[in-house]
Design a protein around this nucleic acid. Sequence first.
DNA 1: TTGTAGGCGTTATCAT
DNA 2: ATGATAACGCCTACAA
Lengths: 352, 352
Amino acid sequence: MVDRTTNRRVARKPATPSPTLQDVAQAAGVSTATVSRCLNSPELVVEQTRERVLAVVQELGYAPNFGARALAAKRTNTIGAIIPTMENAIFARGLQAFQEELARHGLTLLVASSSYSPKLEEEQIRTLLARGADALLLIGFERSARAYELLQQRGVPYVIAWAYSAGSDHHAIGFDNRAAMRALARQVFGLGHRDVAIIAAPMDSNDRARERVLGIWDAAAEVGLDRDALTLVQTPYSIENGARVMAEILAGPRQPTAVMCGNDVLAVGAMGAARAAGLSVPGDLSITGFDDIEIAGIVTPGLTTVHVPHRQMGIEAARVLATLLSGGAPPVPLLLETQIISRASLGPVSGT
Amino acid sequence: MVDRTTNRRVARKPATPSPTLQDVAQAAGVSTATVSRCLNSPELVVEQTRERVLAVVQELGYAPNFGARALAAKRTNTIGAIIPTMENAIFARGLQAFQEELARHGLTLLVASSSYSPKLEEEQIRTLLARGADALLLIGFERSARAYELLQQRGVPYVIAWAYSAGSDHHAIGFDNRAAMRALARQVFGLGHRDVAIIAAPMDSNDRARERVLGIWDAAAEVGLDRDALTLVQTPYSIENGARVMAEILAGPRQPTAVMCGNDVLAVGAMGAARAAGLSVPGDLSITGFDDIEIAGIVTPGLTTVHVPHRQMGIEAARVLATLLSGGAPPVPLLLETQIISRASLGPVSGT
DNA sequence: TTGTAGGCGTTATCAT
DNA sequence: ATGATAACGCCTACAA
C-alpha cells in the first residue's frame, strides 16, 4: 500500500473488502445461518462446528456489518446519550461509569452533545434514533414537547439523569438540585453572609441551573432576604466565563461577601479572578461551587461544594436501561443523596 | 402512553413505527426512488415534485434509517475517533474543534475510547469500521501491526493526531512532543535545577509519553546529566495519581528541586500534594506540566507548561479527512508549533 | 443440529 | 424527470 521509493502513500481503494457472513460460511463449509448462530446464540450450535466457524471468524478478522445487522434484527445494542457538553468535566465521570456498566450488559454507548441547545438536542435525538439507538440517556427534564412525543411515539426507552422530580412520569435517576443547593445556601447564610452574588448557568432550558438558583432563593427567604437582594448573573459553564463574570461583579457597585456558583467550573474561574483582584478567599470573599469535580479539591483554597454521586448515577442509569430493554419491570425514579463538602473557600463573613 | 390514574408508565411497543421511504413515497404519490433523490440529489427532481415530497417528509417526521442507508450506499458520512480517554480535558478541546469542522463538511463524529489500551483500541477500530465509519482519527503512532494492517486492508483513510514524525508514511497532524519537552527541560536545567524528578504517563504503548521523557533526557544530557540521575515514575493520567506519586517522591530519599510532569493533569495533582506537604511552589519546588489546559492558568501558582494548539489540530485533522474522503490530494504531514507558557510554578533553584 | 429463503429500508442502475 | 428493481449483509422463522 505504500510506495517505499517515494515514501508517499498510494491512494487506492481496498483490494480486500470486509469479509461477510458469506465468506465465513463458505470458508467454514457451513451455511450463513450457522455462522450467524455461532455469533449470536452459540448454544444452538454443536461444539465442533462452532469451534471451526469461530476459528475462521478469527482468521478472516470478520466483524458483522452493523448496518445490515441493525436492519435485520431491528436492534443495535446501542445506547445513545445526549449530554450538554463534553468540554468540561461535569459529565465525564458519570458518562464513563455509564459506559462501563453498559459494556457489562453487552451494550455500546454512542455520545452526542447538544451544547445546551434544545433545538440541537431534538436534532440529536432524531439522529441517534435514525442510527438505531435502542434507548437513550438524557440530561434533565426540560425539552420540547415534540422531543418527548418523538420518544413516546417511537416507543424508545429513555432515562433522565442529573435531575429528579417526585411526581414524574419519566424514568429518572438523579438528585434534588434545589434541595442540595438550598442546604449549601443555608450554610452560607448561617455564616452571616447577606451580600451574596450568584453566578449561574443560563437558566432558560436548563432545569438544573434553575433549580439550583431556586434553592438559594429558598434559603434567602428563610433569613428574610428578598431574592432581588441577591445579584444574579448567568453565563455558560466555563472557567473563563466564571472568571470574567467575577471580575465584572467586583468592578460593580456592590461587593458581595460570598459568591455562590452554579457549578465548580464557574467557581474555579471565579476564584481565580478574585485572587487576581487581590482578594483573599475566604477572608475577603467566600466562594462555593456545585458538583465536586476533581479540581474542587485541588484549587487553593479548596472549594466548598456539593458532592454529586456522578458515578453511581451513571451506573444506575445504565442498569435502568438494561432492565427496560430486556423487558424488565420499569423501575421507580431513584433519588440519590448529595453531600456538602466543606473545604476552605467558605468562611464566616469578615467582621466589620 | 401514560396511565394518568396510577401515574405509571405503561410499557408498550410503538403504535407508530418510524416512517419509511415507502410511507413517504405513498403519501406523496411518487416512487421511493424519487423520494430518495429529493433527499440526496434534489437537483435531479423538478421543483414541484420536490416541494410536495419534502412537505410529506416534514409532516411525517421522516428520518432515513441509518443502517439501511449504510448498507445500500456503502458510506455513512461518519468519522470515528478513538481517543485514549474522555475522563480528563486533554482531548476535549481538540475533539470539540474536530467535531465542529467535520459538521461543516457534512460529517458526523463517533467517539470511542481505548483507555490507553492497544488491545482495546484495536477492538474499537474494528467496532467503528463495522459501524461503517468512513474514516478514522487516531491518537499517536503506536499500535499493533495488526491494527495498521486492518486499516490498510480495508482501505479506510485515517489521520493520526497529537503526534508527528518526519519520515512517516501516515497522514499525521501534530507536534513534536520530544522537541517541545526538550525546550521546556532546557529552561528547567537553565534555572540551575539538577535534582529533577519526572512524573510521566505509562510509556509502553504511549509514544507521546515516551517522546516527552526522551526530550527531558535530551536536555539532561546537554548539561552532562545522566538520565539515571533523574527519578522517573510512571502513572496513568489523573489528578489523584499525580498527587499520590508526588507524595511518594517527597517521602523518598532524594528531594528534587523540580518535578517535570508528562501533562497538566499530573502536574496539578503534584502541585496539590506539594502544597499539602507544606512546600512552597516554586520556592521549595518547581513544577511543570504539558498541554496548557484550562486549569493550568487557574491553579496557584500558575503552571508553567507547553501550549499545544489543540483546536487547530482538531480542525486540521478534520480537513485532512474531508479531503481524503472527497478523493482529494493526500496532504503532507503537518507539524504544528508548540509554545512554552511561563507561569509562576517554575523558578530558579533555591540557593542553598 | 443445520440449511433455505424471505425480508429489513435505502441507494443506484436501468429503463421509460 | 421519474419509476422499477436489483443489490447491500444479516437475522430468523420454518423446514429438513
